[in-house]
Write a protein that binds this DNA or RNA. Structure first.
Lengths: 188, 188
DNA sequence: CAAATAAGTCAACAACTGATTACTTAAATG
DNA sequence: CATTTAAGTAATCAGTTGTTGACTTATTTG
């Protein structure tokens, strides 16, 4: 008896299962290397349902990953200790294996189809709101450099796994990163 | 008469043609998206010769790209204007379409097979020599943060093509990047 | 309960991937 | 010049990719 209860049908739950599985696989493998069949298998769902519900792999990526990108929680508190807060946060998630939308996006950052989505998200959802919180001149430029620093940090630390970043001296690393970021926040 | 002179045979030149074409294609498309057939076509060479001369696509990548990564020329001059020099250099190559090994490596940075090669190169060929040129404490940590900043800058500026980085205010951008880098060089 | 609709399945397509094998042809060697 | 060695070619393998159309089955509606 392979199917005692032949599985209740529920489009909404199926779509959610696909979205959850997509997050996991895109996070682990990036855009290109993530196969629709693997996503469907992990969701315990037929491959064809991806096309049915999300149109295409690109549509699935858009629906699953992009909305998770939100840095509001980084900007809620005061900005005079932004550097320290963020540096500690990035250091803390160094070893994390759990889903992280930033890593998912970075792993997709070299895929032809994902780049336009990524570009818009970085501009609108990340740099723009950050710049809005910066007082003084050249807010966009400073925001951009904060984002490039954090981007490179996550890329080399968590994707390329460069040892000198994660293992050397975590305290020094966090302190220096905090200072670098805060200087960009405070710069005039 | 399709072949008036049926093409002189020269293994060395053939290998060089493959290497040159490989640089171009890896630079343009990254590791995964670069196909062996396209590389062979651009080199005007049969696909099978890639396997013959370089064993595999990975072997070709290793031979073609990795040796081009060399930051010695960045470290030859004095370090008290490092920030300004490098910031100007990175700003200048913003619009470049020509082969750049850094971009080639970045475009490969999310490919499973290329990551180990990339990691070792970043550690040994980039962070290590840079750290050796930094006086004071936490040289490795400061070198790492310089590299992460430049990595993120190139990734978002030249691969993702984030507009706020390239088009907004180039002067401010260069000035701020120069200061950020120099502070990390001078930090104690 | 029967008909209509929605949900899910299956098999296949067409395009592509990296790599290999057996082959042909040119160049070098004696 | 004949033979050996090296260089290059063509066809193909086995695998994967995203996507689709025809089908079956469950759920809801009248």
């Amino acid at each position: 008896m392979p199917h005692p209860t032949p599985k209740r049908r529920n489009a909404e739950k199926t779509q959610q299962a696909i979205l959850d599985a997509a997050c996991q696989v895109f996070f682990e493998k990036g855009y290109d290397a993530a196969g629709t069949r693997e996503i469907a298998d992990r969701a315990n769902v037929n491959v064809a349902l991806i096309s049915r519900y999300f149109g295409s792999k690109e549509g699935l990526f858009k629906t699953a990953i992009l909305p998770k990108l939100n840095i509001d929680f980084m900007l809620e508190e005061e900005m005079d200790n932004f550097g320290q807060r963020i540096a500690e946060m990035f250091a803390a998630k160094s070893g994390e294996k759990q889903f992280d939308p930033v890593i998912a996006l970075l792993r997709a950052s070299t895929s032809k189809e994902a780049i336009p989505l990524l570009r818009q998200t970085v501009e609108e959802q990340i740099i723009k709101p950050l710049a809005a919180r910066l007082k003084g001149k050249a807010a966009y430029e400073r925001a951009s450099l904060i984002v490039t620093q954090l981007t490179g940090y996550d890329l080399l630390n968590r994707i390329v796994n460069v040892k000198t970043i994660s293992t050397n001296n975590a305290e020094d690393m966090t302190r220096l990163l905090a200072k670098t970021l805060q200087d960009l926040v405070d710069a005039s």
